[in-house]
Computed example of a mutant assay.
Amino acid sequence: MNLLDDYWHMYDLTLRTIREDKPDTFLEVAAILNRFQQPTCTGDAFFPDGADDILGEALHDAGWYVSWQADYLWTATHPRTRARIRFVEGDLYDETPTEGGKR
């Protein structure tokens, strides 16, 4: 395998892990994503997307409700835990409401 093959293998593995493990909190999602790539920008986690299979679809398959504004801008909410993730051009932000108020 070359570096490009390794990259796409890890990309696919990351999305498959989201689907199979069905994380229900931001921290669980971030832990899976950080195995692929550590956050490099302003977000709490990062995932590049940019392929036919994308993170928003993997989260949807794992039980999250995804509200799409664009491919590069969406919010995912877990129906049981109320965890909330904001995706902006690869950067992910934990917008989970805290007890007694919003985050």
Rank of each mutant, 00 (worst) to 15 (best):
L27I: 11
T81K: 00
Y93V: 05
D52R: 09
D61N: 09
A58P: 08
D53P: 01
H9K: 14
A30S: 13
E57T: 10
M10S: 14
E89K: 14
H9Y: 13
H60A: 14
D12M: 08
E28L: 08
A70V: 02
G56T: 02
A70E: 13
Y93N: 00
F36S: 04
C41R: 15
V29C: 06
G50Y: 08
D49C: 10
L59Y: 09
E89L: 14
V29N: 00
A76L: 07
Y72S: 15
A45K: 05
G90C: 04
G43V: 02
N34C: 10
G50L: 07
L55H: 01
E89V: 12
L55R: 01
W68K: 07
I54N: 11
W68D: 09
I18T: 00
R16N: 13
Y93C: 03
D61V: 08
D61E: 14
W64V: 01
F87A: 07
D91S: 12
L59Q: 05
A51R: 14
M10D: 15
Y65Q: 15
I18K: 02
A30W: 00
Y93A: 03
P48K: 09
R82C: 09
L15M: 08
D53Y: 10
G56C: 04
A45V: 03
E28Q: 14
T42H: 11
L15H: 05
A30K: 11
L13F: 11
T98W: 06
A30L: 06
G56F: 01
D91M: 09
R86D: 13
T17E: 12
D49I: 03
A70M: 07
A70W: 06
E28K: 13
T77C: 09
E20D: 12
R16F: 10
I18R: 00
T17G: 04
G90H: 07
T77L: 08
A58E: 02
I85Y: 00
Y11A: 06
G50N: 11
P79R: 02
P39A: 08
P39I: 02
L15K: 02
